[in-house]
Simulated assay, not measured.
Amino acid sequence: MKISIIGTVILTTFIVVQGCSSQVKTIPGSQQTTAKNSQEHDLASNSNNSSQHQQHQQKQAPASSTQAKLIVPKKIKSIQAVPLAINIQDQSGKTVSNFDTFQEKQMHLIVVSDDLRFFQHVHPSHKGNGRFEVSPDFPAPGSYTLFSDYKPTGQKEQVSVQKITIPGEVPLPTALEKFSHTKVLADTKINLALPEKKLIAGKEVKLSFNVQEIKQNRPVKDLQPYLGEKGHLVIVKSSSPLTTSDYIHAHPLKDSRDGQINFLSSFPSPGTYKVWLQFNRNGKVNTADFWLNAI
């Protein structure tokens, strides 16, 4: 179904980032500038992206660049099912029409509130001619950052960052954030184990998540694949404004035993980070979030 939207257009220009199905991808930062003013407002952000993956290396095609235009309604009347469209073009403005499927989808869209309290991982549908559509729900009015991750055919994996503001009264936090390494989700407990007490910025680190059945007090044995992997990990640094340099998406190591999901990653610079672990148990995707400090 085509959605006709007259609204706000956000333009993001960036150079590709190397993709990898078994390790982490990081994307250096972007800078936003206003492009033009008309009935539709264009905001442009430019980022030079480069990535080196540890343990998994392959030959890549030469880097190219694309443009991603995020289109939102001119007037957002609800926080529910907000219709968004993302148009992918090359640098000359020509439509990019063909995309590879990676991790079972053609596009992964990570939506976070700028205070990192809210997280959503959704998958826009490709409607043809480089246009992706999705209608995510937002928990409340406020400012949000969107990281769109896709792979044009014959090119490397690419990530863009865009901003959206949901109008209305922004609610005050109801509780302080907790720096705990344990999270309980219904009948499942997740413990995050780090090899050292202190997390050193720039140093590669193994993040081990132990997933346990609470009633039986034993490792979970019924984990199922989620998007082709045992789990997924998204890491975002607490920054203002959020940019692509604050975003990391990691995939698990293959040697994890039952009830354990391991990742190899690094935290590029000192600061506070929010991490979200996603895994599939009994056909339900679970999300466990943790705050970490890197020094």
Rank of each mutant, 00 (worst) to 15 (best):
D137L: 12
S65M: 13
A68M: 07
D114K: 08
D115F: 01
R117E: 02
V112G: 00
K105C: 08
F102K: 08
S125L: 10
D137P: 12
A68E: 01
K69I: 02
N46K: 07
A63V: 07
L109C: 07
S47A: 14
H121K: 07
V82P: 10
G130K: 01
K74P: 02
I71T: 13
F132P: 08
H121R: 04
Q89S: 14
K75F: 09
P136F: 07
N87D: 07
V72M: 13
V122T: 12
Q54S: 09
Q120G: 08
L43N: 09
Q39A: 11
Q106Y: 01
A61K: 14
Q80W: 06
F99Q: 09
Q120K: 13
P124D: 07
S64E: 10
P139S: 15
D90P: 12
V112N: 01
Q89E: 15
S45F: 00
H41N: 05
Q39N: 13
K105S: 13
V72L: 10
L84M: 15
F102G: 00
A63N: 09
I86C: 07
R131G: 02
A44H: 08
F102H: 06
F138P: 05
H56A: 06
D42R: 15
Q67H: 13
N129D: 13
Q80S: 14
V112F: 01
A81I: 00
L84T: 03
S113R: 02
F118R: 04
H53M: 11
P83M: 08
H126N: 14
P62Q: 13
T66E: 06
S92H: 12
S64D: 08
K69S: 06
V112H: 03
I76H: 11
S64Q: 14
L116V: 01
S50F: 13
I110S: 05
V96I: 15
